[in-house]
């Protein structure tokens, strides 16, 4: 979900827009700390990269940490989609439902 949120946000992907995107798409208010923990794991796996922006007064002089999906992360997202689609198929209980 976080990978997809990053793809959707493009160049403006830092903590606040990411958690808002998750809230809008899933209806769940995910804690910012949990978002960063997940992003750290994704970065360790080289699915995302990050860099610090400049500090801004609106954030008490704290810098934003921007994230971007790497080509490896994009490939992983596509593979996950493929796997989910094939898992979704052929389940009678879920036939006709739209995810």
């Amino acid at each position: 979900m976080i990978l997809l949120a990053l793809v959707r946000l493009g160049d403006d992907a830092y903590g606040v827009p990411i958690s808002k995107e998750l809230l809008e798409t899933t209806g769940r208010d995910v804690a910012v700390g949990s978002v960063y923990a997940a992003l750290d794991r994704l970065e360790q796996k080289e699915f995302v990269s990050s860099m610090l922006g400049d500090p801004t007064p609106a954030r008490g002089g704290r810098a934003k940490r921007y994230f971007r999906v790497t080509p490896k992360g994009l490939r992983e997202a596509k593979m996950t989609k493929k796997a989910l689609i094939s898992l979704w198929r052929g389940i009678p209980q879920l036939e006709g439902e739209r995810g």
Partner: peptide
């Protein structure tokens, strides 16, 4: 208590949303 690596970004994000 927040790990140093994310401390600045998390603090900034929380201040931004609090504002």
């Amino acid at each position: 208590l927040c790990p140093g690596r994310n401390r600045e970004a998390i603090t900034g994000d929380l201040l931004e949303r609090f504002a």
